[in-house]
């Protein structure tokens, strides 16, 4: 073989390997857990402590935000609420939506309960002290930080990542969706979680 031919074959092999790698990255098997992220937590709700393990056997969709959030949080919860409404009744009982507020200073447990229920009667609003929230946020590869707004009546904003986390009935985090996803896409992903 000429050196050029060897080079060509090497290039083709490298290209194929790259494409396979990219495909694996962008289309992960929905049932395969993201082994390094996720895991159990216990937070507070208006009805008492709630742990992720309470929902073993159910698919869980988790969103982390705050109620002063003007758009992406209500939008994400509305997408979740809509997807839950579209599920057949027997499936809906096997899905739990959770909203975690990273603004416990302003979001009381009672307010979080009412806020979550506004988007779907089954949604649960949760929060905790900063140390506990920091731990959960880190576990899920999320992010938040308090930012002072000096001239605003809001006083501060909470910068935060915005993802709908998908957790399978074994309690494993298997992926996430952005707030620009359609309720139909979320519905399909929930059904994949239930069928695994």
């Amino acid at each position: 073989m000429t050196p050029i031919r060897i080079l060509l074959i090497t290039c083709i092999l490298a290209l194929v390997a790259t494409l396979v790698f990219i495909r694996q990255q962008t289309e992960p098997n929905s049932s395969a857990p993201l082994s390094t992220q996720g895991g159990d937590f216990t937070l507070n709700s208006a009805e008492g402590p709630v742990s992720l393990r309470d929902f073993r056997g159910q698919a869980v969709v988790l969103y982390i935000g705050y109620t002063y959030c003007p758009d992406v949080c209500p939008l994400s919860l509305a997408i979740l609420g809509q997807a839950l409404k579209q599920l057949p009744e027997e499936d809906a009982a096997r899905v739990q939506g959770l909203f975690i507020s990273v603004d416990p200073e302003r979001d009381s447990l009672e307010h979080l309960r009412d806020y979550a229920r506004f988007f779907h009667p089954s949604l649960i609003g949760l929060t905790a002290d900063k140390a506990t929230l920091d731990q959960v946020v880190q576990q899920y590869g999320a992010f938040y930080r308090r930012v002072e707004m000096r001239d605003s009546a809001m006083e501060y904003a909470v910068d935060h990542s915005s993802r709908l986390y998908l957790i399978n009935p074994k309690g494993e985090l298997v992926g996430s969706l952005s707030h620009s996803s359609s309720p139909d896409l979320l519905l399909r992903r929930i059904q994949e979680l239930l069928n695994d």
Partner: peptide
Amino acid sequence: AVTELHTHLEVEGVMQMRQ
């Protein structure tokens, strides 16, 4: 009571609301 002009920027996946 108060009405303000705000933007919400997405910077590397993080939403940042600013007046």
